[in-house]
């Protein structure tokens, strides 16, 4: 499979879950695990361009496919507008649901660059956050929508440490 644009390969047990392959084999620990029942969404990654819950996909099933994780959001040292939005609008507290939320947000904005609050809430409704009450996640995604230009590069100023 390719992960964040890089080809990776490995022999794994067929039963290995994709989330474990990413975390344990590739050490891409930005993808989290939070439940076992595909209810929480902390494990969301893109597979062939679509957000999926990686706790409910076998690594073997992802073989030959294109995976994108949170580690693939930042491009050439430039944070994605979604990442900047989460920082600017305090869209995260403990940070555990954040990677999955941001990947869904990126997908939403790719398909709907100017989503309403309702559309944002609908898009992230399969993912649980215990800290933010969702309000600032919605604001963060709106921020990203308002601070993106066509190709996804964001506003100029540096945010974050």
């Amino acid at each position: 499979m390719t992960v964040n644009g890089e080809a990776v390969s490995g022999e794994v047990e067929p039963r290995l879950l994709l989330v474990h392959f990413l975390r344990d084999n590739l050490r891409l620990t930005g993808t989290h695990w939070g439940c076992d029942t595909s209810n929480c969404g902390t494990c969301v990654v893109w597979m062939d361009g679509v957000p999926v819950k990686s706790c409910t996909v076998l690594a073997a099933m992802a073989s030959g496919r294109d995976i994108r994780t949170v580690e693939g959001l930042e491009v050439n040292g430039e944070l994605d507008p979604v990442q900047k939005g989460f920082i600017e609008m305090h869209g995260l507290q403990c940070g555990f649901c954040t990677p999955g939320m941001m990947l869904t947000a990126r997908w939403l904005l790719d398909h709907n660059p100017d989503p309403s609050e309702t559309e944002i809430r609908e898009a992230i409704s399969g993912q649980i956050c215990r800290c933010t009450g969702y309000e600032n996640i919605v604001r963060a995604i709106r921020w990203a929508a308002e601070n993106s230009n066509g190709n996804g590069a964001a506003m100029k100023e540096e945010v974050g440490a």
Binding site: E74, I87, T98
Partner: peptide, 18 residues
């Protein structure tokens, strides 16, 4: 804005299972 966010938004938090 929070200092800790820089690592969290990059997926570079360091939780026990990491």
């Amino acid at each position: 804005i929070r200092k800790e966010d820089a690592r969290f938004v990059r997926g570079k938090g360091n939780y026990v299972d990491d």
